[in-house]
């Protein structure tokens, strides 16, 4: 036994592998727990905004509601339509949920607290989030239903459209920090006027992530009033639960991305030194919660956009504006010799 622990196989592959699996398990556990309680938080916040109480019956203040929902969904029967394309029908929700979890590999939750500290972290995040559309398209096509198909079509064009302006927003932030590594993005020395210059981009980004995660007021792919559930109309039980969890995991992921790119990650807000005694991870979680509150707040406030209005906003307002702003920011940085 002792010999095994000293062997090259153990020190080179076994131990690092075990540590990695442990880190991945911890990250997934935290994210899934957060997803479960995000659904609870959403119902509570929506309830409060509409002068209701929200879930109250299961456990104290309804705190066990997400667990009850999970058990209910797990114990139901998964119905697969007879005309559906079975492998793709089942693969779609799995893919959506997996992609939402895979992206967390590069998210630094505190200084050097990250599973994979890769050089192109920002690009990795962007690549994974741009693949999220496949889960939805595959679901819509494989269901062999008109409603699901229409929902998938809407989702595909919507996500592709808003990705363009999201890409340009990310380019602007990268111009100010000069690195694709997410830890460097947070730790970069950003003067106050640079932050002010990035403020319009934060607005574009916040609206784009609403569209990217198919959340209200851009939840046309679901569109329960005209598509009766959109791309997930044929899904039930566990397959439906995976879609649901994937959507919320994506929300948390996008909030983490906003936090890292714009809100300074795990650093105390506004660079106040006196608040530095609070552990970085607490700031990180608080900032994510603030962005998540924004998600729920928008849902409670705005009616759904019409489809042509959504396309107009993406292509005729955000795209020209963010393109212009990339040039402006680059020009200003170059003029004042502030390029990193």
């Amino acid at each position: 036994m002792q010999e095994f622990f000293n062997s090259l196989f153990w020190t080179d592959y076994g131990l690092p592998g075990l540590i990695m699996v442990g880190q991945i398990g911890a990250m997934i556990g935290v994210v899934v727990f957060a997803v479960a309680y995000l659904t609870y938080a959403e119902r509570k916040v929506l309830g409060a905004m509409q002068r209701r109480q929200g879930p109250m019956t299961v456990g104290p203040f309804g705190l066990l509601q997400p667990i009850a929902d999970g058990v209910k969904l797990l114990s139901k029967e998964t119905i697969i339509p007879s005309q559906a394309n079975k492998p793709i029908f089942i693969l779609a929700p799995i893919m959506l949920f997996t992609l939402a979890l895979v992206a967390w590999a590069v998210i630094p939750v505190n200084y050097k607290w990250v599973i994979a500290d890769i050089n192109v972290g920002v690009l990795y995040l962007f690549a994974i989030s741009s693949m999220g559309v496949y889960g939805i398209i595959m679901a819509g096509w494989a269901s062999n239903s008109k409603y699901a198909f229409l929902g998938a079509m809407r989702s595909a064009s919507q996500m592709v459209s808003y990705e363009v302006s999201m890409g340009l927003v990310i380019v602007t932030v990268l111009l100010c920090v000069g690195s694709l590594n997410l830890t460097d993005v947070v730790m970069a020395d950003r003067p106050f006027w640079v932050q002010i210059m990035l403020l319009p981009m934060l607005v574009v980004f916040l609206v784009s992530i609403l569209a990217e995660t198919n959340r209200a007021p851009f939840d046309l792919p679901e569109g329960e009033s005209e598509l009766s559930g959109g791309f997930m109309v044929e899904y039930s039980a566990m397959t439906y639960a995976l879609f649901f969890l994937g959507e919320y995991a994506n929300m948390i992921l996008m909030s983490a991305m906003t936090t890292i790119l714009f809100l300074g990650g795990w650093l105390p807000p506004f660079g106040i030194e006196a608040l530095a005694f609070v552990p970085g991870i607490i700031w990180f979680v608080l900032k994510i919660c603030a962005v998540l509150f924004f998600f729920i707040w928008t849902r409670a406030t705005f009616p759904r956009y019409r489809y042509d209005q959504l396309m107009r906003l993406g292509w005729k307002v955000f795209l020209p504006f963010s393109l212009l702003w990339v040039v402006v920011v680059a020009g200003v940085l170059l003029t004042f010799d502030a390029l990193p």
């Binding site: 690009l123 990795y124 741009s130 595909a156 592709v160 990705e163």
Partner: peptide, 17 residues
Amino acid sequence: MILVIVYVGAVAVLFLF
């Protein structure tokens, strides 16, 4: 990453579409 973003995230989506 560029391969995934451009080909998987944009070109293949339009193909599939």
